[in-house]
C-alpha cells in the first residue's frame, strides 16, 4: 500500500516537473540563430541537400565519431561475453519457399541499404539507417538457416577498414586545411548541388559509417541468435 502511494507521488512530481514546459510551449515561427546558421551553411558552404546529414557528419562530426566508437565497444563486449560454441544444432531444415525467398530478398534489401547510405546527403537517412537495413538482410538469412556460418575475416576486415578510413579522412582535414578542420568534408571537391558525387567527403564518410554499422550489428546478431 505504502509502495503504491510512493509511486503515485513520484508520478505527480513528474507531472509537476513537466508543467512549465507545457505552459511556455509555443511553435517557433522562425529558425533560431544557430539553426539558420546550420541551414545556410549546409546549402552554401557544403552543397548538401539534406541538412540533417550535414549536421551529423560535419558540424557534429566528433559526436558521430564517438557514437561509432560506442557501437564498436558494444560489439567487442558482446563478442567477448557470448563466445560461440562449436557444435552446430541438428534442426529441421526450413522450407524450400523460405530459403529461396530469403536469398532473393537478401539482394534487394542489401541494395536498398547501400542506396540509403550513399544518398545520405540527398535524401533522408544515412549511414546508421542503411547499416541497420543491411543487418536486417543478414538477419533474414539467419532466420532461414540457423546453422549459417558467416565469414568472420571478411566482416572484421570491412569493419576495421571503414573505421580506419573514417579517422584517416578526419586527419586529412588536419593535414590539408589546417588545425581547425578535423573531419572537414571540403577536402574533396564540392561538385554540383543535388548530384550523387557532391558535398565533398560527406557521402564517403557516411558510406564508411554505413559499412561499419552494418558489419558490427551483423556480428552482434550472429553472436546472439546464430546458435
Amino acid at each position: 500500500m505504502i509502495k503504491r502511494i510512493f509511486i503515485l507521488l513520484a508520478l505527480v512530481g513528474l507531472v509537476l516537473m513537466f508543467i512549465p514546459f507545457l505552459r511556455d510551449f509555443d511553435f517557433h515561427k522562425e529558425l533560431s540563430k544557430l539553426s539558420s546558421q546550420y541551414v545556410e551553411g549546409s546549402i552554401n558552404d557544403l552543397n548538401t541537400q539534406n541538412v540533417v546529414t550535414s549536421v551529423i557528419v560535419t558540424y557534429r562530426g566528433l559526436d558521430t565519431l564517438g557514437e561509432v566508437t560506442v557501437l564498436f565497444l558494444t560489439t567487442a563486449g558482446v563478442g567477448f561475453l557470448l563466445r560461440k560454441k562449436k557444435a552446430s544444432l541438428k534442426t529441421r531444415r526450413s522450407s524450400e519457399l523460405l530459403q529461396t525467398a530469403s536469398q532473393f530478398l537478401f539482394v534487394l534489401i542489401i541494395l536498398t541499404g547501400i542506396f540509403i547510405f550513399t544518398h545520405g546527403h540527398l535524401t533522408p537517412g544515412g549511414g546508421f539507417q542503411g547499416g541497420v537495413l543491411i543487418t536486417t538482410a543478414f538477419l533474414l538469412l539467419i532466420l532461414a538457416d540457423v546453422n549459417l556460418k558467416f565469414n568472420y575475416s571478411i566482416l572484421h576486415f570491412v569493419e576495421s577498414f571503414s573505421g580506419v578510413f573514417y579517422v584517416m579522412i578526419g586527419l586529412f582535414g588536419f593535414l590539408i586545411l589546417g588545425m581547425n578542420s578535423f573531419l572537414d568534408p571540403t577536402i574533396l571537391p564540392l561538385g554540383n548541388y543535388g548530384k550523387l558525387l557532391s558535398a565533398g567527403a560527406i557521402p564517403v564518410i557516411y558510406s564508411l559509417i554505413g559499412l561499419k554499422v552494418g558489419s558490427e550489428l551483423t556480428t552482434i546478431i550472429d553472436k546472439m541468435g546464430g546458435e
Binding site: 546529414t53 533522408p124 544515412g126 546508421f128 539507417q129 537495413l133
Partner: peptide, 11 residues
C-alpha cells in the same frame, strides 16, 4: 522528421 523516423523504425 523522416531521418528520425527511419532510425526509430529500423532500430
Amino acid at each position: 522528421a523522416p531521418d528520425v523516423a527511419m532510425t526509430e523504425a529500423a532500430i
